[in-house]
Design a protein around this nucleic acid. Structure first.
Lengths: 122, 122
DNA sequence: CATCTGTATACCTGCAGCGGCATATTGCAC
DNA sequence: GTGCAATATGCCGCTGCAGGTATACAGATG
């Protein structure tokens, strides 16, 4: 994987927040919306940007689309994601995001269908 | 230091090459020109870009301008520079640059006036 | 002073990304 | 099938950056 491409993905705050949230485990789009409190379009486009460059992977699960960090990341990517996680731990915004994520659902991480919507899985 | 700003600096190949060359020690602009074999303007502008954002520092020494990595880098910057060095060691282009740098002058790193020009220090 | 060398800056063009609005797509429920 | 929820995509305007050419600046030399 090309180093420059990786850094291009990392040089936007929204994308950093998305990747930061993915570190603990897979999430669906509505989680990102709930935590970042940004428009659906904005989040969706940044996720598409990341996916097109191999920084995240996605999978459909019923109505939802689950995003995750690559299962087998290239060495350079792994190193930089680790570095990001390390650095993000020192910035308020990222910590707040993670805190909000935890509030969303305790067993959320790596759990089944997201159940994020008001309608939820019904 | 803002993480996003750091990554903005890292998302250009020329700038990565410059930073990679600075890892062993300070250099003057003509060294970058000799190693990268890019136009003077291109290199100068990228160095200005990096300096404006605190990724490098510069100091005049007679006719030459010496660039170096920050003496007291912020934690996030230090982490990412270390990561970059690690990743760069695996890419041919960066290794070739370092090899060329070594050929330029054995005692070059951290030495005195650069002596790079034909006229040199005379 | 004039001149040369090393380096920086101004101005321009082209291109890519960001964010917004509107709309499309996919799958579920009825 | 209809309708709705979750998500993606197309188009537009704006901004910022990359790289080029020409020019300016600073210091050394004579």
């Amino acid at each position: 994987m090309d180093l420059v491409k990786i850094y291009e993905c990392l040089c936007d705050r929204t994308r950093l927040r998305l990747l930061n949230l993915l570190a603990p485990g897979p999430l669906c789009v509505c989680h990102f919306q709930a935590v970042l409190r940004e428009s659906q379009v904005k989040i969706s486009k940044h996720l598409a940007y990341l996916r097109a460059r191999g920084l995240v992977e996605s999978e459909r699960e019923g109505n939802w689309i689950i995003y995750r960090l690559p299962v087998k990341p290239a060495r350079a990517l792994r190193a930089n994601l680790a570095c990001l996680q390390d650095c993000a731990a020192e910035e308020k915004l990222f910590r707040r995001d993670l805190a909000r994520l935890k509030k969303l659902g305790p067993g959320l991480v790596a759990s089944g269908p997201c159940g994020c919507a008001p309608a939820g899985r019904k």
